[in-house]
Design a protein around this nucleic acid. Structure first.
Lengths: 163, 163
DNA sequence: TCCTAAAGTTCTATTTTAGAACTGTCAATA
DNA sequence: TATTGACAGTTCTAAAATAGAACTTTAGGA
């Protein structure tokens, strides 16, 4: 399957994966949330090749996750800033970081700690149900076809509820 | 950078990306949460080549995200089941799906709806602070070095809080 | 005997990525 | 004036990963 085909799939996960579903895009976005903004900053902090960095930044701009903002004339230079669409990726980044914190840390402990400015405490992210506020687990969720579903899509199981 | 190098990075995001940070792993995991368990089921529902599917399943088993469970002797056949480690990936999958629901749906609406069995309502996932319970936004979070941080790592900005 | 199912493995061609060098613009310095 | 350095890329070749198809193995059933 081509990357472009993913965008067309009747699946919100596949469409998001088309935007951020590769190694470098996720690492670039992490840097964005750490206030990294400039080409050479990304390049030296990540060690990504300049070629791929240029390519991925272009893609993230095309999808409206980042925007180029001029910070200097003569010669014209741009910074890459998260748009609202990009800021909305924060739960994805945080849940990835959290899983790593729980399952992939070595004996030295977590590389980074996160402080919530509102309550001034170090926190972990918790995912809850928007309707009842209870923490979510996979087993407590039933999946239904929505209006945008495609019947007998190759990307969907025939019956999501079967055992 | 090699994939193996990612596991070693002092960054929980990089380490998690080493496990699930490619297109097919994420799509395979989505199918797992939709109760898909068998090789040919994955293959036909995703359209992934058999070669890559075998490779990715092996990787996910190696990282303890899936386990092989025999469901038939003679010939020996296995199903791929999410471990607890794998079930813990649910917030990642759900936040990816949610972002797609908000930012990538077409005019027909969402492909899938999610019902919370506890409260019987269709819901969206919400990420909150474990300490105060308030919804999280990127701007309300300050990052600190943790015990596992590596000073002057190429994978970290020199000063996460600089502007 | 032949056909089918399941779970892979093997093969070649194509695409993507890594790694390094190169380009162009401008400011500051010698 | 010539040189150096910062920044934001682009171009090149070699290496690695992926796509797409065919093949293998084990066993049950027609």
């Amino acid at each position: 399957m081509k990357w472009d085909a993913l965008e067309e799939e009747p699946c919100s996960l596949a469409r998001t994966v088309a935007v951020i579903g590769d190694r470098w895009s996720l690492l670039i976005l992490r840097q964005c949330f750490l206030r990294v903004r400039r080409f050479d900053e990304f390049q030296s902090s990540l060690g990504v090749t300049r070629h791929l960095l240029a390519d991925r930044l272009k893609k993230l701009v095309r999808f409206g996750v980042l925007r180029k903002s001029p910070y200097q004339e003569a010669p014209k230079r741009y910074e890459y800033i998260l748009t609202q669409r990009g800021l909305d990726l924060y739960p994805i980044i945080m849940s990835i970081v959290h899983w790593g914190n729980v399952h992939m840390v070595d004996s030295r402990g977590r590389p980074l700690l996160h402080e919530h400015k509102s309550c001034h405490k170090m926190f972990d992210p918790v995912m809850i149900c928007s309707e009842c506020g209870e923490p979510l687990t996979a087993k407590a969720v039933r999946v239904h076809q929505g209006p945008g579903a495609r019947q007998s899509s190759p990307m969907h199981a025939k019956d999501p509820e079967k055992h």
